[in-house]
Write a protein that binds this DNA or RNA. Structure first.
Length: 509
RNA sequence: CGGGGUGUAGCACAGCCUGGUAGUGCGCCUGGUUUGGGACCAGGAAGUCGUAGGUUCGAAUCCUAUCACCCCGACCA
């Protein structure tokens, strides 16, 4: 990077200048991930993976607290399994990687170089899982015999592959990491309840851990998961005012139970099909966090998922200062590490690399570490430390008595967490508009200078009307929100028909 | 897969029009001075110019093909 003129942001271009480019620069500047030699597949670097580990660990606890157990199922799915549920098959057909051979034949080409040629063709091709309903269904059919075996509450942490046309780091990669919950229930009501419950877990996690003010709702038939009876979702708004689906929870009815033949003997002795659900969130959440909270200096991490809550930068002007400063720094780190922030010990990193203080500071700014602490000889004399909050900009440095800082550190982290949430909520509110006419709606998304956002409008259109809207404006119904504030009498802006509820429309990722 | 753009050192780019055997900034390495807003001086390493053909005495530069990546769209978590 070239030397940055003072008061200029660390990331170029800025969000305002070019949002997609800004996004890529933030990912790179924070050293989170990079594209690999395989198109669409990313290398997740330690800083990015550290964020994923935090997310994983916290969500995993929430799943366990709601009675779920982890298991692992195969990466490869027999092609015929995917064909069992018609809509599911159609939905995923165009984005599957297929394994057709099981060995390579070594041969020399004319230059004497060893070439490997696929051989050993499989009698039945195998598909790299785009999602695991079918293969887990096959396992469930073996596991379930009686109502006493239900409910079956399983989660899997895995990678999946969907051959996407236009990949983007974290947001849409061909291979991505996720969790997929799969459950089977005795009754429809229980399955519906599970679908709802897990959406609630996602919403809680995203609001409290990721500081994302998500909207909970239901997808329209058009946007439903292939094979589901009902798809629930949590939707977030990011700083280019687009919507992003951050998580989904599906009620699968008996569709997959019938496809995979998951049957049990009920309390009345009759053979019945189970009712299943599935629900998932992915590494896409990291992309959502970047776009929701980042600023023109780079990433801003919600403290709860930051790999390091606090970075301490020792300031050593002269060699004679090294020992006392480092001793003070280690002492400070030790005391901080005694403390807990929610369920984790405070994660404190001492950056003692032989670099300029300014260089180190800017690196941690770009990585989004919530609190930076500088400790130098002047602090030792005064018993103070210099603390800077990432959410308040590089000039917000405050000199605090060391004891006061230690005592207030976790409260400050929580304050940052809360501020990020509030900021994102204010942003969403500022760009959510109730619209009642077709002209107003079209202007909102396509008028010159219009910036878009969430259009909150009455709707009574058909699936075809929805498609037309998408064609005209690239706008879709993000969800039918649950919140009762959206329930009211009105008329559809598109068809003029009566409507009972406003829906959320937006361009989306 | 459609439209647009770009491929030259780790990153960002110049050089191409008008062919003569590769350059700038940052980064990296060494030594020293430094370190609380992105340091400074000196020295150094690093690129078969995306790939393959062609034209030419000579190609980063001209021609042809091809691949990759990025942005916008369709698809999607």
């Amino acid at each position: 990077m070239a030397k940055q003129p003072q008061n200029k942001s660390a990331i170029s271009p800025t969000r305002e200048e070019d949002f997609p480019q800004w996004y890529q620069q933030v990912v790179r500047a924070a050293d989170m991930a990079e594209n690999s030699e395989v198109r669409g597949c990313m290398v997740i670097k330690p800083w990015g993976y550290g964020i994923w580990e935090r997310i994983q660990q916290q969500l995993d606890q929430m799943f366990k607290d709601t009675g779920h157990e982890n298991a692992y199922f195969p990466l490869l799915i027999p092609l015929s399994y995917l064909e069992e549920e018609a809509k599911h098959a159609e939905g995923f057909a165009t984005e599957c990687a297929v394994v057709t051979h099981h060995r390579l034949e070594a041969a020399k080409d004319e230059d004497g170089k060893t070439r490997l040629v696929p051989s050993g063709e499989l009698t039945e091709p195998l598909v790299i899982r785009p999602t695991s309903e079918t293969i887990i269904g096959a396992a469930f059919s073996r596991w379930v015999e009686s109502y006493r075996d239900l409910p079956l509450l399983i989660n899997q942490w895995a990678n999946v592959m969907r051959w996407e046309m236009r990949p983007r780091l974290f947001l849409r990669t061909a291979e991505f990491l996720w969790q997929e919950g799969h459950t089977a229930h005795e009754t429809k009501e229980e399955a519906l309840e599970e679908t709802d419950k897990m959406l609630g877990v996602y919403a809680k996690f995203m609001r409290e851990h990721l500081a994302l003010p998500v909207v909970m709702g239901r997808k329209t038939e058009n946007e439903r998961f292939p094979g589901a009876e009902d798809t629930l979702c949590v939707e977030a708004m990011v700083q280019d005012r687009k919507a992003i689906q951050a998580g989904t929870s599906h009620f699968l009815g008996q569709n997959f139970a019938k496809a995979s033949n998951i049957q049990f003997t009920g309390r009345d002795g009759n053979l019945e099909h189970v009712w299943t659900t599935s629900w998932g969130v992915s590494t896409r959440m990291i992309g959502t966090v970047i776009m929701a909270h980042g600023d023109d200096d780079g990433l801003i991490l919600p403290p709860r998922i930051a790999p390091n809550h606090i970075v301490i930068v020792p300031i050593i002007p002269k060699e004679q200062h090294r020992e006392p400063v480092m001793a003070a720094v280690h002492q400070l780190a030790a005391e901080l590490r005694e403390q807990r922030f929610h369920d984790d010990r405070l994660s404190v990193r001492i950056d003692d690399r032989d670099l300029n203080g300014g260089v180190k500071n800017w690196e941690w700014i770009k990585k989004g570490v919530p609190l930076r602490v500088e400790v130098g000889p002047r602090d030792l004399e005064k018993g103070s430390v210099a603390v800077t909050r990432r959410d308040q900009g590089p000039k917000s440095k405050a000199f605090l008595p060391t004891a006061e800082f230690i005592a207030s550190a976790t409260a400050t982290l929580q304050d940052i967490q809360d501020q990020l949430y509030q900021r994102a909520l204010d942003f969403r509110e500022a760009h959510s508009v109730r619209l009642d006419t077709k002209d107003a709606f079209y202007d909102f998304f396509q008028k010159k200078g219009a910036q878009g956002g969430f259009a909150v409008a009455h709707w009574a259109g058909s699936n075809e009307d929805e498609d037309q809207l998408k064609k005209d404006l690239q706008v879709t119904i993000r969800c039918i929100p649950f919140d009762e504030a959206y329930a009211e009498e009105g008329t559809c802006f598109y068809t003029g028909k009566a409507s009972q509820r406003r829906l959320i429309f937006a361009k989306s990722y």
